[in-house]
């Protein structure tokens, strides 16, 4: 079944967000629709949330994955800030997936912090969806 994990019949809950001053929302809106079409439960944080509010929505809504997108070069401060807040709220099992205009060197730095994916423009949607399924499964295993 699409959107569910083979081992556990569970729908992936995913929050898509742009945690900074960035109105370039074409990517997140396309992804939100694609995640929904892939059978996931999708939440959108709206525009201009702070990293703190993204983390709080993620915890309140009990999501499995937070998908972050930025096109304004703030990924190195904003993505880790979401991670930090999730930890503070006792929810660092929630997986963070990144995307946007992210130079290769920054990609490595984000990976080290446990922020995975970090997809650039032109990445096939299926590749992003597959990745989300993979990290969601990782979370479910951790949660058990």
């Amino acid at each position: 079944m699409e959107g569910t994990n083979n081992n556990m019949k569970r729908r992936i809950r995913i929050l898509v967000a742009k945690p900074a001053l960035d109105g370039h929302d074409r990517g997140v809106l396309v992804l939100a629709k694609a995640f929904r079409d892939a059978g996931m439960e999708v939440l959108y944080a709206g525009l201009l949330p702070t990293p703190e509010s993204v983390a709080r929505i993620a915890v309140d809504e009990d999501v499995d994955v937070v998908a972050l997108s930025l096109h304004n070069s703030a990924h190195l401060s904003a993505f880790p800030a979401v991670k930090k807040w999730l930890k503070k709220l006792g929810a660092d099992d929630i997986q963070i997936v990144g995307g946007g205009i992210i130079p290769p060197a920054d990609r490595k730095k984000l990976e080290k912090l446990g922020i995975t994916g970090n997809f650039g423009p032109g990445t096939p949607l299926d590749q992003v969806i597959e990745h989300v399924r993979k990290v969601a499964k990782k979370k479910w295993v951790k949660d058990q």
């Binding site: 900074a20 001053l21 960035d22 702070t50 304004n72 703030a74 190195l76 401060s77």
Partner: peptide, 21 residues
């Protein structure tokens, strides 16, 4: 981005974005 949204460089919302774009 902080200038475009009407925030000063010293604002919390500006952190990491001053002089970037």
């Amino acid at each position: 981005m902080p200038t475009l949204y009407g925030f000063d460089a010293s604002s919390d919302r500006a952190h990491g974005e001053v002089g970037k774009c």
